[in-house]
Structures are given as C-alpha cells and as structure tokens.
Amino acid sequence: MTIPKTLIGIADVYKFIVRFFRSALVPPYEWREIGNQCYAQGNQSLFLITFTSFLAGVVFTKQSQPSLASFGAESWLPSLVSQAVVRSLGPLITGLICAGKLGSNMGAELGSMQVTEQIDAMEVSGTRPFSYLVVTRIVSATLMLPILVIYADCVALLGSFVMVNAFNDSSFLLFFNEVAERITYLDVFGSLIKSAFFGLAIGTISTYAGYHSDKGTTGVGKAANTAVVISMISVFIIDLLTLQVLNFFR
C-alpha cells in the first residue's frame, strides 16, 4: 500500500460520501425502498440486540453491586446502571451488533451484486442503482440505529431491574423512578445523535466496501470482512468523538 494509493483510496471514499449526500438530498427520494430496508435491518438485528443488551444489563448490574455495596451505596445501583446504559452501554452494544450484522449483510449483498454485474445491469438500464442500493441502506441504518438504541436501553434496563430485584425486592416503580431521575435529556439526545452517526458510518462503510468490491468470490468475502471490521472500529472512534463534543454541553 503506497502513499498515493492510500490517498486515492481516501479520495474515493470522499467522492462516495459526497455522492451519497447528493443522491440522498436531491429528489426523487426512495421512501418505499428506505421503508423496506428499515424493516429488514430492524428485523435482522432485533433478536441479537434483545439478547445481548439484556445480558449486558444483568451482568453490569451484578458486577457493580458489590463495589457499590462496599460504599454502602447500593441504592445508587439503578441510577448508576441507567447512566451507564443510556450514555454508553446501549449505544455501544447496538453499534457493535449492527456493525456485525448489518455491516456484513450490506458488504456481502452489494459485493455479490457487484461481482455478478447486477449493479452494472441496473446502471445500464438507467435505474440509478446508487440511490436504490446505497442511499436507501445508509439512510435506513441512520434512522434505525437510534430506534434500536432506545430499544436496547429499555431491554438492558429491564435486565438490570431483574438483577436488582434479585438482590433486594424492589418494586418496578421505584426502579423506574430512580432511573428516570438520573437520566437527563442531554444523555438521551446525546446517545441518540451518537447512534445516528453510528448508523451513518456503518451504512457508508459497508455499502462502500460492497459497492467497490473486487471481482471474484474472494472480493465478496473481503468486502464483508472490511465492512464489519472498519464499521466496528468507526463505532469506537465516533463514541470517543461524540464524547468530546458532548463535553462542551455538560
């Protein structure tokens, strides 16, 4: 990988992103296909997110409990968990799961379409494959991630409640009040905006990897792999960057 090649690669990505925004903002819009993609993406990742975020809520609560108890601050458990879940855990889990699930899906799907010339076929019949395949996927990932994050937050908090309830019999209402008291609008909106960026990044990276995959079956594998790996890394990077930005407002 020489420096000029790397720079050309960056230029390619830049052009891709510019093209995405141009196609996404200029009509005709692809509402119907965006709706389809939203449904498909939500459907694909719902089970995984339910499973992982519930477990994360349980585990996080169980592990925080002894150290809080040693301070005599066990009653802080709901508020600690709620902050951790809403600010960081929920978006991060959703981001990583979606990077894995949606990223590999988009990378492999578009990759194989590229390899079998389906994208070229759409191109030559004048059906704007970029809008149809790329824009819809990125837009729906950007829309779906925040929704999935809210869902993941709820499930993780439910897991946490189950665990808190196991330690000492507390009512759901008490738990809910404790949780609600600690979470600010900034926390919620911050994490929603953050997860929208996760979706944007996952969508862009994965569709880029698929759309520009090499010819041949290895190209598809490489595209899916690149999509997942870079998406996951970008989730962490965006997590860090949004933290920096949010700190202005705190």
């Binding site: 720079l7 230029a11 390619d12 990505v13 960057l241």
Partner: peptide, 27 residues
C-alpha cells in the same frame, strides 16, 4: 485524474486531521 485524486485524498486527510485536533483542543 490520478493526480487529482491524490490531491483530493491528501486534502481530505488533512481536513480530517485538523477536525480531530480542533475537537480535542476544544475538549
């Protein structure tokens, strides 16, 4: 076009770096 792409890539990279530096200094 190759040269243009290299230049565009370099500018993009510099732009991203500047953005990151600014963000962390502001932080």
């Amino acid at each position: 076009t190759r040269n243009q792409d290299i230049k565009l890539g370099a500018f993009t990279l510099i732009g991203i770096l500047l953005f990151l530096i600014a963000l962390f200094y502001l932080g």
